[in-house]
Write a protein that binds this DNA or RNA. Structure first.
Lengths: 220, 220
DNA sequence: TTTCTGTTATATCGGCTTGATATATCGAAA
DNA sequence: TTTCGATATATCAAGCCGATATAACAGAAA
């Protein structure tokens, strides 16, 4: 089931590996930093967190009802009023729920990252972004797989363009041509990455390799 | 409801405007010709057709149980055996259901095409592909809106990149840089299109404008 | 002081897409 | 004759998106 590895869960785990965060913070980080790469909606983020929590991959570290720095206005009732935990337990409007990654989550992160199933554009971008946590062979393989996939897409598009004798409407041709050129330049970029990876694997200790925690890697 | 205009329905209507087709043929056309632009799965295509049919935008033109050219083997039972319409009516395994577009569908096509709501990458590509059916002002507006959107995305990404004093992991920076450059080149492409559109609007009769059926346009 | 507004924060819903799978027909090759 | 691959339609569980609801809180305006 679970068609291919879920990029969103991968990103969430990747970010939580850096530091504990609550949902809102996660989304902020994603849109501010990775906004060009991916895009998250509330309707997928919170269910994703819930899923990860159910799997034991993350757990609520801290659930503070946002006690502000109490200004010294004398004692106005002791513990600062009711903790109105809104009907069902921990959550509540402004009651932050800060998540942390568990060992299970860390293992899941590496397992998802090294999953060799075919990936789409977004999946590729996300994995590459976290590629410093992959081991070099897998990383190289991922790049080559992606290259082959794009190559085949472009070729097949050109093939079927050559096959038909007539041209489509001019705007269709326009768009197709642009997509072919975008893919071609993606291809060149990936080729360059492959070249660098390959050469830094021959002589290690290059700063292009940024792997320190790779041995934690759990290959399911 | 119906968050923004549905690109898939737009494409289906656009293709059916050219000629009647059944689902399988539609998917073939889409993946062969527009494969670089979009991607359709069975699980969305058939429901989309059903939706369009329910709206009266398309209708089954012909539902032939695939009678092959009868080879003259004398009379072997008359009308060529049972039409096993598989349990519930018209459909059945190889019983093609050929769809045609209706007047309502044609109106819907123009309405969706000219919908000015904010669109994502895919939505933009699809609309641009059918842009010969838009009127020139809307087309130009769409291009400018898209340009502004990308411009803002890139700027905001650069802004938040400049703001933080430290760099992310090298692979993240790598990916971000690539996306910025992709977006920048998209931007240049769109600027060029805008330039051409604008100049062909000043002096009409340029072959860059391919509008003949624009007056059918129904602006809801 | 109170009110109003904008940001922080979590959650849910309907509608749609996806990838997988099931079913069945047909033509042609083996 | 059987087998195989292409044609053809359909459905399902999971997941995502955009919209919307709810509420706490900070600070400015009134």
């Amino acid at each position: 089931m679970a068609a291919g590895t879920n990029s969103l869960e991968l990103v969430v785990l990747g970010l939580l590996k850096e530091q504990d965060m609550h949902g809102y913070e996660l989304k902020k980080r994603m849109t501010e930093s990775l906004g060009l790469i991916m895009h998250v909606s509330w309707g997928s983020l919170y269910p994703a967190l819930a899923r990860l929590e159910a799997k034991g991959a993350v757990k609520a570290v801290e659930a503070k009802p946002a006690i502000p720095n109490i200004p010294m206005t004398g004692s106005l009732g002791g513990e600062r009023a009711v903790f109105r935990t809104s009907s069902d337990g921990l959550r509540g409007a402004r009651n932050k729920k800060v998540y942390g990654i568990t060992d299970i989550g860390s293992a899941l992160f590496y397992q998802m990252l090294n999953d060799e199933r075919e990936i789409d554009e977004k999946g590729f971008a996300v994995r590459l972004a976290f590629a410093s946590h992959m081991d070099p062979e897998k990383r190289l393989k991922m790049l080559k797989d992606r290259r082959d996939l794009i190559l085949e897409k472009v070729r097949s598009s050109r093939r079927s363009a050559d096959k038909r004798r007539f041209a489509f409407e001019p705007y269709v041709e326009l768009v197709l041509e642009h997509f072919r050129s975008t893919n071609t330049s993606d291809l060149a970029w990936i080729e360059e990455l492959i070249r660098k990876e390959a050469s830094s694997m021959q002589r290690p200790n290059t700063e292009f390799l940024v792997s320190q925690d790779i041995q934690d890697n759990i290959n399911s």
